[in-house]
Every structure is written in structure tokens, then in C-alpha cells.
């Protein structure tokens, strides 16, 4: 992390690198039969635990904890799936094919089809292709993730100015980083920001997919995951 901090040269970006959460792993039930329900159960359990990680991570995004509790909730309720998808996409970048939900839970096209998540897989793959072409680095990933949180367009914001300040702070950090680290491409920050609509579209599709899983009722869902799916 120290090398990365020195490299980024921007205080906010360095801070975001430092507060990047540790990896979490899938915990499949070894006694469960190998089928689509087992895969989805393992995935939903992983997402539930990742949600706790995301909520704790958000507290360390500069300026977030200074917001009112209501605004913190509003941002997270709107952005959690975008944050989660961006992490999934970043982990999957080095892989030829497959979505790296965790190092021990990589879902390839066929598995996604079997569990009813093929449509979502294709959309996420489009996002992965985009970031792979851009050669998204870790500094950009952490900054975009914080921007997704701050730019969540929650309908229930009390202090619009505070959110705007947070967005401006992160935007400045990205521009500063790009100016210093990617001199050769003056349009790079724009290119990165232009990926955010696809990220939102993908997150909305993911929410729909997991709501379908809830409706089907075959997979046990944890309370926090259900709460966040209802809130979105």
C-alpha cells in the first residue's frame, strides 16, 4: 500500500487505497448437494457479508461520516450494488473469462446461465471489457468506487450541498491523479466517468436479478441483503 500511496501523489486517492477492504471468501456448505441452489446460496451469503464490508468501507470515504445519518443511509441504499459490481469487475479484470465474486467463487458463463444470471453476466462482461480496454488501475478503481457512492442520485438527500462537496472533492482527486499519472491521455478522466452510466444500468439489472431470486424462494436470504434489496 505504501508504494501505491507514493505513486498516486494525491492525498484522497492514497487514503482510498489505504482503506480498501481485505478480500472476503465464499463459504459454501460442504454438505449441500452440488446444484444451482447451492451456487446461489453461496453467492447470496457472500453478498450479504460483502454488504457489511461496503458499509464499513463507506465510513472511511473522506467526508462520508460527516454527513447526516439519513444521508449516509440514502447514499448507501442507492449505491451499494454499484459499489459491489465495481469490486467484482475489478477483481475479474485479469481473468480471461468468468466473474470473480471471490477468489474461491469464480462463475463462468455456463454456471451463470444455469443459475439464471446469464443476462447479468453479459452486462457485467461489457463493463469488464470497457475497463480492460482502459487498463483501469487500482487508484482509479478506488476513486470511481467512492464516486459511485457519492453520485448515487438518492431521492432522500437532506443536505444536497454536502453531497455536492463530496462529489467535487472526489472529482478533483480523480482529475489530479490523471493529470499526474496519465499525462498522455488528457481525456482519460472523462472516459472513466463515461463508464458510470453502464455501471448504474448493470447494478439495476443485478438488483432485478436478485429480487427474482427472492421471489422464487429457493434460496435462503440474509436480512441485511433483503433490507438493501427492498431499499433500492
Amino acid at each position: 500500500c505504501c508504494q501505491s500511496s507514493k505513486k498516486s501523489g494525491n492525498k484522497i486517492v492514497s487514503h482510498l487505497l489505504l482503506v480498501e477492504p481485505d478480500k472476503i471468501y465464499a463459504m459454501a456448505d460442504p454438505t449441500a448437494p452440488e446444484n444451482d441452489v447451492k451456487v446461489l446460496t453461496t453467492l447470496c451469503d457472500l453478498v450479504d457479508r460483502e454488504l457489511v464490508v461496503i458499509i464499513n468501507w463507506a465510513k472511511h470515504v473522506p467526508g462520508f461520516s460527516a454527513l447526516s445519518l439519513g444521508d449516509q443511509m440514502g447514499l448507501l441504499q442507492s449505491a451499494w450494488m454499484e459499489v459491489l459490481i465495481l469490486g467484482l469487475v475489478f477483481r475479474s479484470l485479469p481473468y480471461e473469462e468468468g466473474l470473480v465474486y471471490a477468489d474461491n467463487l469464480v462463475l463462468e458463463r455456463e454456471q451463470c446461465r444455469v443459475v439464471g444470471l446469464l443476462d447479468l453476466y453479459c452486462t457485467i462482461l461489457q463493463l469488464i471489457t470497457k475497463y480492460r480496454k482502459l487498463q483501469l488501475d487500482k487508484e482509479e478503481f478506488v476513486t470511481l468506487k467512492a464516486m459511485a457512492l457519492a453520485n448515487s442520485d438518492s431521492m432522500s438527500i437532506e443536505n444536497v450541498e454536502a453531497i455536492q462537496n463530496l462529489q467535487d472533492l472526489l472529482h478533483e482527486a480523480l482529475q489530479d491523479y490523471e493529470t499526474n499519472q496519465h499525462l498522455a491521455d488528457p481525456h482519460r478522466s472523462g472516459k472513466l466517468l463515461m463508464t458510470l452510466p453502464l455501471l448504474r444500468q448493470t447494478a439495476n439489472k443485478a438488483i432485478q436479478s436478485f429480487r427474482r431470486v427472492v421471489t422464487e424462494g429457493k434460496v435462503p436470504m440474509h436480512k441485511l441483503f433483503l433490507e438493501m434489496l427492498e431499499a433500492k
Binding site: 487514503h15 467526508g63 443511509m73 448507501l76 433490507e227
Partner: peptide, 20 residues
């Protein structure tokens, strides 16, 4: 807030403000 009680509780748990 009552409807979203787990999120509410997690956010209130040892909040670590970051002042940069």
C-alpha cells in the same frame, strides 16, 4: 429508518470520521 434497521445500526457502530 425503522424499515432499514440493520443498515442504521451498522452505520451507528463505531463510526470513524475521516477528516482530510
Amino acid at each position: 429508518k425503522e424499515k432499514h434497521k440493520i443498515l442504521h445500526r451498522l452505520l451507528q457502530d463505531s463510526t470513524s470520521p475521516v477528516d482530510l
